[in-house]
Amino acid sequence: MASSPSPVQRTVLIVDDDRDIVETLCDIFELRGWRTLRAYDGQDAVRLATQNNVDWIVMDVRMPRLSGVEALQAIREKLPNVRVVLMTAFATNDLAARAERAGAARVLYKPFEPSTLFAVIDSAA
């Protein structure tokens, strides 16, 4: 899919029920040479994550069918090494604590600069 394949093409799964969020983030990741996967709810996310070799998951917290935190827990059971960044419009300390317990690398509050997201990814690399 990438027009200019890099030596190691990484894959990111973008999950949000807001399709515009998914589209814009995918475009940005692709611009940076990433392979992108799209999911619009938690169940799809779990399915896609297990079916594909995914390096990073950027996932919304509040979603239909399966919430981001639940999806995270489900994915971490199967793929303990995958790294996850959670996005939310609702900032609470409680959520951050739960997300970190579930294994999220970071919780980002919308709206955030994509550069912040890449800084998180780069620092974890």
Binding site: D18, D20, I21, T24, L25, D27, I28, L31, M87, A89, K110, P111, F112, E113, P114, S115
Partner: peptide
């Protein structure tokens, strides 16, 4: 706003 931020970044 998130969408807008992303779109602007792009």
């Amino acid at each position: 706003l998130g969408v807008m931020t992303n779109a602007l970044f792009y």
